[in-house]
Every structure is written in structure tokens, then in C-alpha cells.
């Protein structure tokens, strides 16, 4: 009973991580290149978003036609619809940190590489460590 959700989590994480690596989103220079609208703009990140949103939109459409997911009793859809100051302030702070270093929380735990190369473990996971620690 508890094995299926774990396997689903593992497969999902593997696919998600493979996508981040393949798309180049584990590279801060690609992320900052996308944010650098007035400089040497690299639109790649927009293509990642389009691909990911397209596939997930189809899955969400399909999910709404099911009464329950395959290995859980119910879908847990986020319920909030309000756009409040906390949402906008938080997103602005996230964008500030994202633009400074080029890491967002997804690629951060995916990124073990530089740690081994530079020997600075604290420099590698700004996203995950602070996300978890805050």
C-alpha cells in the first residue's frame, strides 16, 4: 500500500530531473540568459515552460475527468484563488534571488556537480537549503 506512492514519487522525480538537466535549466547561465532581456537574450527557458505546461495541462484535463488518481484516494488540488500581497511579495523576493544567482528550487537539489568540482558544498544548493531551512 505504501510502496506505490513511493514508486510514483521516484519515477516522477526522475522524469522531472532528467527534463531539467536535458533542457539546460541546471545551468545558471541559461537561466540568467533568459532573464537578460535587454542583453544577450536566450529564450530557451520559455520553450521549457511551454513544453512542461503543455503536457501538464493535458494531464490536468485528464485528471479532472477521473474520480480519483490511480494510487491514492483523491486528487489534492490547490484551492486558493486569491492574489494577495503575500503571494506577490514572496514571488518578487524569489525573482530577486533567482536573478542574482540563477538557481531556482528545482535545479538546486538536482545539482550535485559543482559541489564535487569546487569543494564548496554550501555554494551549491542555495535553493534547497534555504527553501528547507526558512
Amino acid at each position: 500500500m505504501t510502496l506505490a506512492p513511493r514508486l510514483v514519487g521516484l519515477v516522477s522525480g526522475l522524469l522531472f530531473g532528467a527534463g531539467l538537466v536535458l533542457s539546460g535549466m541546471t545551468r545558471p547561465d541559461k537561466v540568467i540568459g533568459f532573464l537578460d532581456l535587454t542583453g544577450d537574450w536566450d529564450p530557451s527557458l520559455a520553450f521549457v515552460m511551454v513544453g512542461a505546461i503543455g503536457v501538464f495541462a493535458f494531464a490536468a484535463w485528464a485528471a479532472r475527468r477521473q474520480t480519483r488518481p490511480v494510487w491514492a484516494p483523491s486528487f489534492q488540488w490547490p484551492t486558493r484563488k486569491d492574489i494577495d500581497a503575500r503571494l506577490l511579495l514572496g514571488s518578487a523576493l524569489f525573482g530577486l534571488g533567482w536573478g542574482l544567482a540563477g538557481y531556482c528550487p528545482g535545479p538546486a537539489p538536482t545539482a550535485p556537480g559543482p559541489e564535487y568540482r569546487t569543494g564548496r558544498p554550501d555554494a551549491v544548493r542555495p535553493g534547497l537549503s534555504s527553501c528547507v531551512g526558512s
Binding site: 506505490a4 506512492p5 510514483v8 514519487g9 519515477v11 516522477s12 522525480g13 526522475l14 522524469l15 522531472f16 530531473g17 532528467a18 527534463g19 531539467l20 538537466v21 536535458l22 533542457s23 539546460g24 535549466m25 547561465d29 541559461k30 540568459g33 544577450d40 537574450w41 536566450d42 529564450p43 530557451s44 527557458l45 520553450f47 521549457v48 515552460m49 511551454v50 513544453g51 512542461a52 505546461i53 503543455g54 503536457v55 501538464f56 493535458f58 494531464a59 490536468a60 485528464a62 485528471a63 477521473q66 480519483r68 488518481p69 490511480v70 494510487w71 491514492a72 483523491s74 486528487f75 489534492q76
Partner: peptide, 29 residues
């Protein structure tokens, strides 16, 4: 545009979406 990589970006995006889809359809998260 020095480093524009549309094909790997789109393919990677599809994989990211697939991963999120597995989690939603599998366990509703």
C-alpha cells in the same frame, strides 16, 4: 542570442511536464 537551444529545451520541458503528470495522475499531487 548566444546560447539558444530550443530543441533540448522543448524536449526537457516535455519531460518535466511528464514527471509532474505522473505525480498528479498517480497519486493526485
Amino acid at each position: 542570442m548566444a546560447d539558444f537551444t530550443p530543441v533540448p529545451a522543448l524536449l526537457g520541458g516535455l519531460l518535466v511536464g511528464a514527471g509532474a503528470s505522473v505525480l498528479l495522475l498517480g497519486i493526485g499531487r
